[in-house]
Simulated scan of single mutants.
Amino acid sequence: MRDTFVKTLIDIAKEDKNVHLITGDLGFGVLKPFWEQLPDQFTNAGIAEQNMTSFAAGLALEGKTVFTYSIGNFPTLRAIEQIRNDCAYHNANVKIVCVGGGFVYGSLGMSHHATEDLSIMRALPDVTVLAPGDLVEAEYATRAIYEHEGTCYLRLGRGGEKRIHDKIDDFQIGKAIKIKDGARVAIFSTGAIFDEAMEAKEILSKDGVNPALYTFPTVKPIDRKTIEECAKKFEFIVTVEEHNVIGGFGSAVSEVMAELAGTKARIIKVGLNDMYSSIVGSQNYLRDVYGMSSSKIVNRIEEIIAKS
């Protein structure tokens, strides 16, 4: 995803000299093509994410479209006051990019596990939050936030994500994408953990369960229409996110469903169960430990169906 983001941003920045990219002293192997081709539109702010964010806000208020870039929690949680006061409050055209959402940097421990970022960023007024599920969504999401006025957050995986789409005909901020139709169960996924959701659907289909599958590249604004339609059509909605179940994607879906009248689906949230990971390991290992691997998703859904 990060390579796709950089390639897309280079194309955008070549056409718009007001686009500026700032890194917090990270990502040089990936960002090198950008600064080599567009040195006057690139700044390394150093390991000073708060300053990076305020600097970005200043540039944005002078007419620039500014992308900040770093890994995990560094461009978000470390600089949350600057995002709130300097960017969001002024509706500044700053696009905050995190590479390594969830357990991408799992072996580096809790400080590098980005598992609260979606909830915190979506709580800020006027901040748009996107978490693409594959390379194609990442490209469209990058272009969408560039065109969108105001402060945005783009949460990326790292690399190696499975491709979902060949193309997307009508990508829109705030619109979910139906991948497969199904019966009884609808699986909603956001971000790079989509590959686990897709594999879970394939396993369930072989077991005689045929869940529908949706990807939500946008967490805020959430696609209320799709949620409302699925809540009436299916018995169960299962949300999948590589994130704390409190305040994140599942909570955003729950907030919509809580306001619906009449008979509606039951919601089940798959994610980190309101805790920090006290262990380290690869992304796939931690997903499995904390119930987010495809096999664990399958077990959860089959148990729910068996009890219904």
Rank of each mutant, 00 (worst) to 15 (best):
Q37L: 10
T218F: 06
Y214N: 01
K307W: 07
N93L: 07
C98T: 14
P217T: 15
F103P: 12
A200N: 03
A186V: 08
E302T: 05
V289D: 02
K95F: 09
G250W: 06
T128K: 08
G291Y: 02
K14N: 15
I203D: 06
P217Q: 14
A60V: 00
K232Y: 08
Q172P: 09
P217Y: 14
I47F: 03
I267F: 01
V289Q: 06
H243Y: 09
L108Y: 14
G58D: 02
C152T: 09
I164P: 10
I177W: 07
L204H: 03
G182D: 00
C87I: 01
E147D: 12
T53C: 13
A48W: 05
E49H: 08
H112D: 13
D207E: 13
E81K: 09
A192I: 08
V97F: 14
K307Q: 10
N284I: 13
F55H: 15
N18G: 12
V240Q: 02
S295F: 01
F42C: 10
V209W: 04
L77F: 08
D40W: 09
F34N: 03
R287W: 10
F216A: 09
I237M: 01
T23G: 07
P211D: 00
A186M: 04
D117I: 12
Y146I: 11
D117T: 11
M110D: 14
G72S: 15
S54Y: 05
G248C: 13
N244E: 05
Y285F: 15
T8Y: 08
F249G: 06
D40H: 15
I227V: 13
I173V: 15
K233F: 03
A200Q: 02
F171P: 04
A200E: 02
N273F: 05
T23Q: 02
F5A: 08
R287C: 06
